[in-house]
Amino acid sequence: MSPHLLAQLERLELVTRKMFRGQMKGERRSRRKGQSVEFADFRNYVPGDDLRFIDWNLYARLEKLFLKIFVEEEDLHFYALFDASGSMEFGDPTKLYYAKQLAASLGFVGLCRADRVKVEALGASRRFPGLALRGRHSLPRLLEYLDKVEANQNVSLEQGVKDFCLRNTGKGILVLITDLMDKAGYESALRMLVAQQMDVFVIHLLSPEEMDPDVTGDLRLVDCEDQDTAEVTISRPLLERYRRTLASFIQQAREFCTRRGMVYVATTTEKPVEDLVSNYLRERGLVR
């Protein structure tokens, strides 16, 4: 990650459309009232309250005990979940590399704002359990983790998400970076995330080769994940049909997500991460 990118990312912060309950004091206002410098309200004193919060000036005027209530500032749980299946190993740069970059960028934004950041590869939880990090000094650890993740964590999207959901019950922002190329379908996995009541962003990552395949001749296409084959003779009509299929696939995914309150972003590895974060995701309201 370049210093330039880091400088750019420092100025951003993660935004959520929901207010979540944090575990630790953070930099975000919470629904909970508590200890902070920002005044919120008064209430009558009931025995047992912390005497430190009694407004003694008010007591001097009214001879009644009131308790000052402050807005509690909390931290935010940010999860970046990226697909590390074999199919992510394609493209130049590879989709996986791009996904790692994106996860690191978003993670860094969270770290800078004292949010609780957890970056994890799908299905990698057993070997490389994701790290929950806090504070910008944790960036090297984050990057170290990302470095270790390799493609070929061949687990279905559904299985990976399910696994993740079981281990992480906390509410917060979830960014799912994936190519959605799962023969079993992505729908059940996404539904599971919706059930977690998280603020879900789906970043659909495709390589240019997938958008516009540059292949010719009589080919036997081999799926790198399950070794499934498809025999094709490339011709113009076939390529057009492929593009139509891809377009409708993207359209279906967008509709699916929008309908369930998830934010869907389709991108290719051609688009620089900086652009994506600072322009595109800002527009979509993930960062500010």
Binding site: P213, L219, R220, V222, A230, R241, Y242, T245, F249
Partner: peptide, 22 residues
Amino acid sequence: KLKRQPLEVPSTFLWTQAIEDL
């Protein structure tokens, strides 16, 4: 004797859909 060249792709998912009606 049609010799098809093997080519590894990220996923045959879209391809199989594309050639389905063919």
